[in-house]
């Protein structure tokens, strides 16, 4: 099994400094977006997907676990949050908590099942589980089947911030994204993250060193699922609907594609990948099914020509860790 990424070395102070500079740059750039005339809805959507891709990358890039069912967390948290906001009338902060908690529980259950097998089987199991949930949501009354949950009230966050104002919503989503990003960054560079990387590199050796790798994998899976769910709950406020598209296997594929384009196992790659793919969908919306074909071509060319992804190639050129 060959390594997925170049980064097997421990964190150096220089790398840490580089990454913090890039993070500050990214945060500053995103903070000025509303004053540039860029369509904020597009950026908000991209931020939700960026967080989702980062959560997915935690599993694949650092744990070597390819989940082909991450849409189930996006969809589940979205449905639960939407239901809580619209039917139960919960305030936004509780709606987000409930949705994220649902994703965490789902992560516990599906993680426990899927880590029973390794490698390629793990991917097939996660895909099958998300398809199982897709059919459950298709039939469950509270999701309203093909119509989805629509017209979700945005409300006031903590009773103060009016989320129906695009500018307020933008900064709330941005803060949510940055918080999630930093949490993932912290996890990757913690002792927990180091064990995770050792599992990716050589699981039998990690076991022989006394690590209970199944517990680490399960924890990573739950963490990833919870953050993906958090992204799904945020997305409810942006899109104001929750529908079956978010649970479909093609969505899981898009999450994989974003991370692959940006760079598996890079810190900023999933963010770049998410913006690239969402922008592509935006600009090519008029081409109908050709978008799927183009996505397929990107998949194929990424795997065959630049497996490191955009950020991974850049980091390799600059010999920095990004």
């Amino acid at each position: 099994m060959s390594a997925l990424t170049d980064d097997t070395l421990p964190m150096t102070p220089r790398a840490m400094r580089d990454e913090m500079i890039v993070f500050a740059l990214m945060a500053a750039l995103l903070a000025v977006v509303p004053f540039t005339g860029i369509y904020p809805f597009f950026v908000m959507q991209a931020l939700c997907f960026a967080l989702l891709a980062c959560a997915f990358n935690l599993l694949i890039g650092y744990g070597g676990l390819l989940s082909f069912g991450h849409a189930m967390f996006l969809g589940t948290a979205g449905y639960v949050s939407a239901h809580a906001l619209k039917v139960w009338g919960l305030p936004p902060e509780l709606g987000i908590v409930v949705g994220t908690a649902a994703a965490a529980l789902l992560g516990l259950a599906t993680g426990y099942i899927s880590i029973k097998r390794q490698g390629i089987y793990f991917s097939m199991i996660t895909l099958a589980l998300s398809q199982l949930l897709y059919f459950l949501y298709l039939q469950a009354p509270f999701t309203h089947g093909e119509d989805g949950i629509q017209g979700i009230p945005q409300g006031h966050l903590f009773g103060i911030f009016d989320l129906s104002k695009p500018l307020v919503l933008y900064y709330v989503v941005l803060v949510g994204f940055l918080a999630g990003f930093l949490l993932i960054y912290r996890a990757i560079n913690s002792p927990f993250g180091e064990v995770l990387k050792s599992i990716r590199e050589n699981e039998p050796r990690a076991i022989s060193l006394g690590y209970k790798t199944d517990q680490y994998k399960l924890l990573a899976f739950i963490l990833s699922g919870t953050l993906a769910g958090f992204a799904g709950s945020l997305k409810v406020f942006v899109a104001q609907n929750a529908s079956l598209t978010d649970v479909h296997w093609s969505m899981s594929g898009e999450i994989v594609l974003m991370t692959l384009v940006g760079g598996l196992g890079t810190i900023f790659g999933p963010v770049v990948g998410a913006f690239v793919i969402i922008a592509m969908q935006q600009y090519l919306a008029g081409f109908g099914q050709w978008v799927t074909v183009i996505q397929g071509v990107i998949f194929v060319s990424c795997v065959l020509l630049f497996r490191r992804g955009l950020v991974g190639e850049l980091a390799h050129l600059l010999r920095r860790s990004l």
Binding site: M1, S2, L4, I60, G64, L66, F68, G119, I120, S123, G253, V256, L260, G288, Q289, W290, V291, T292, V293, Q295, G296, V297, I298, F299, V300, C302, V303, L304, R307
Partner: peptide, 28 residues
Amino acid sequence: QWLAGLDHLYGLLLTFGIALIVQGVFQN
């Protein structure tokens, strides 16, 4: 054939891409 020796998951990703292309073309 270029994937020989690489991690299993690249085969899955590549063939997923091929599936998207083939299905997309026919859907068009």
